[in-house]
């Protein structure tokens, strides 16, 4: 499946700045969508694509930092490039703590902005791929029968076939059959691979 084209969202209450940034981004062949306020952005339908957000820290209405918080509450993980004016250091610190991708001081040099955009999109793409891979893994593990899942848990706990057979009250041959199914359904090509996928799923559940 082909990945959708990346997109850059630009939110700034100043139309001239908004249009300038959008034009700059389009000049390197990227899509850019502009919004006059954080609220407009939240209400808009966003395509499911690698993206990043360029945001003025100080805007009337819902501020850049408020939006950052709302996005994180809504589990929307689009990387944010913040643009700040003079003397916004306390705000900068707050946004950094909340995981802002990059901070640029107004007026921003075009190349700096484009570099930050490329970096943020690459970051988001990687993140999306990892997430998609994880979802795929989860789907495969979900297809295991309850019995197979029991076997899987004991395998990754480090038990030998004989011990598993005793534990579950079945023959070693049956254990081997279940085990083969587990390997096949999860597409694990080795025991190490099976361990790794199980660990990934477990740590994603812990988050």
């Amino acid at each position: 499946m082909r990945e959708p084209d990346p997109i850059v969202f630009v939110i700034d209450d100043d139309a001239l700045i908004r249009d300038g940034i959008q034009s700059l981004i389009r000049s390197i062949g990227l899509r850019a969508e502009t919004f006059a306020s954080a609220r407009d952005f939240m209400l808009a339908k966003r395509p499911d694509a690698p993206a990043c957000l360029i945001l003025d820290v100080r805007m009337p209405g819902l501020s850049g930092l408020d939006l950052q918080r709302q996005l994180s509450d809504a589990k929307i993980d689009i990387p944010i490039i913040f643009i700040t004016g003079h003397g916004d250091i306390p705000m900068t610190v707050r946004a950094m703590k909340d995981g802002a991708m990059e901070f640029l001081t107004k007026p921003v040099r075009g190349q700096d902005l484009l570099d930050a955009v490329q970096k943020a999109i690459a970051h988001h793409r990687k993140h999306r791929n990892e997430r998609a891979e994880l979802a795929e893994t989860r789907k495969r593990f979900d297809s295991l029968t309850p019995r197979e899942t029991e076997v899987l848990n004991l395998v990754v706990a480090g038990l030998l076939n004989k011990q598993i057979a005793d534990e579950l009250g079945m023959s070693e041959l049956t254990v081997k059959t279940h085990r083969a199914h587990v390997m096949e359904k999860t597409t694990a090509d080795s025991l190490a691979h099976l361990f790794r996928m199980t660990e990934q799923l477990r740590s994603s559940l812990r988050k």
């Binding site: 001239l16 300038g20 007026p107 075009g110 902005l113």
Partner: peptide, 8 residues
């Protein structure tokens, strides 16, 4: 800032 963005 608008001047710089648009000139760029």
């Amino acid at each position: 800032a608008a001047v710089v963005a648009n000139a760029d």
